[in-house]
Amino acid sequence: MADHWTAKLDTYLDGELPADEMRDLDAHLRGCPPCAADVLSRLQTKRAVHSAGLRYRPSPQFRDRVRKSIASKPRRSPIRMWLGATAAVALLLIVGFVTLSVRRGEMRREVFGELADLHVATLASANPVDVISTDRHTVKPWFQGKIPFTFNLPELQGSEFTLVGGRVAYLGQSPGAELIYQLRKHQISVFIFQDRGAVRELGSSARSQKVLSFNMESWNQGGLRYFVIGDASDDDIRQLADMLKKAS
């Protein structure tokens, strides 16, 4: 056995010797039985270590776990996210708007119904007004100290409307003015309240509608809410409303 070659046997078996040395060692092994036996022994060891070294196997569950951890995860595109967020906001707005509309509708019916009741109650009363006067300069000052606001009344000269008088009315525990006008044989109530609380919830836009067959016109102006209600025609109600708007 040549020590010169012995030191290179493992490298030879690993296939890492330079080509010329491989050729030379091949030639040497053919003529050196001890070295050939050594190579055989090392080769067996090599195979045994290879076999023994393949000892551990990962579980399928662990493999799946790792595979999932490195798999490309679908990421939601910002466009989709933006659309989703927009849709969610839109939905919320729609729901909010519908809820508000329903709530306002209910409140409007409630307030208008109450005003219609006040109007009917006034007409049915033996003393429909507390201040009887056709003079707006008498009626308006009468409210001083009785309600927490003041208002202007229109000049009726040249119109068919007549001021009958006024009284204090309450809507949602808030005091306000009720003015009675007459048009031909129709009694018309004009209610004026501060635009707050339940009244404010009615919204800002002018409304013209029928309540219990009464015609009604409503609007807010200068922090006050006006309601004109009566059994006169829609045009007559609107005409009185326009006169009040101009006076305010």
């Binding site: 020590d3 012995t6 030191a7 046997l9 493992d10 050594d38 022994s41 067996q44 060891t45 045994a48």
Partner: peptide, 13 residues
């Protein structure tokens, strides 16, 4: 280091 002359691994194998 040079490998020793003994090859006991053969027996195990």
């Amino acid at each position: 280091l040079p490998a020793g002359p003994e090859t006991p691994e053969t027996i195990f194998i």
